[in-house]
């Protein structure tokens, strides 16, 4: 099932409330993030369509025009009613949002995949092991 242009536009508003542009951060409705997101929705299209229908019902077809506080209330209601169906959308939005280079850089994280550059992990304080090293063997002999 493929979503119509109208459904994709409606979901853009919803995605922009799941992770909103707020507190200096981008929202999931940002053009680049949403382009990435909308290209990966087909396998969960039925879930997205049900969410849009539920949001339209709760918002009397005017969800996009409502103040953000009211939009949040509606989304929470739909979340409660649709459970895992709603979670599928939250999951997809979150996974696409937190791979955007600008989002990651703003959080102080290195953008891009972990491989092949790898990541740095400090050794940590090995002196913490000293008290355990002093302990006698305690496995059960048979």
């Amino acid at each position: 099932m493929a979503l119509t242009d109208q459904q994709i536009e409606a979901f853009r508003t919803i995605a922009g409330r799941i992770i909103p542009a707020e507190d200096g951060a981008l929202g999931a409705d940002d053009a680049t993030i949403f382009a990435d997101l909308s290209s990966s929705l087909n396998d969960i299209a039925p879930a997205i369509a049900s969410i849009i229908d539920a949001v339209n019902l709760e918002g009397f077809g005017r969800f996009a025009q409502l103040p953000s506080v009211e939009q949040d209330v509606i989304l929470r209601k739909v979340q409660g009613a649709l459970g895992m169906t709603f979670w599928a959308a939250v999951q997809r939005v979150t996974l696409c949002y937190y791979r955007d280079d600008r989002v990651l850089s703003a959080l102080g994280l290195r953008p891009g995949p972990p491989f092949p550059r790898g990541q740095v992990l400090e050794q940590g304080d090995w002196s913490l092991l000293d008290p355990v090293k002093a302990r006698q063997p305690f496995w059960r002999e048979t």
Binding site: R17, I18, I19, P20, E22, D23, G24, A25, S68, V69, Q71, D72, L75, R76, Q79, W87, V90, Q91, T94, L95, Y97, Y98, R99, L104, L107, L109, P114
Partner: peptide
């Protein structure tokens, strides 16, 4: 986990909201 996995874990357990307040709580 990575950033998205952490966000999903925190949203799933109700520690980070969707909607208003998401970014402050997640940071």
């Amino acid at each position: 986990g990575g950033p998205a996995s952490q966000a999903l874990g925190a949203i799933g357990s109700g520690r980070v909201p969707i909607g208003s307040g998401h970014h402050k709580a997640f940071r």
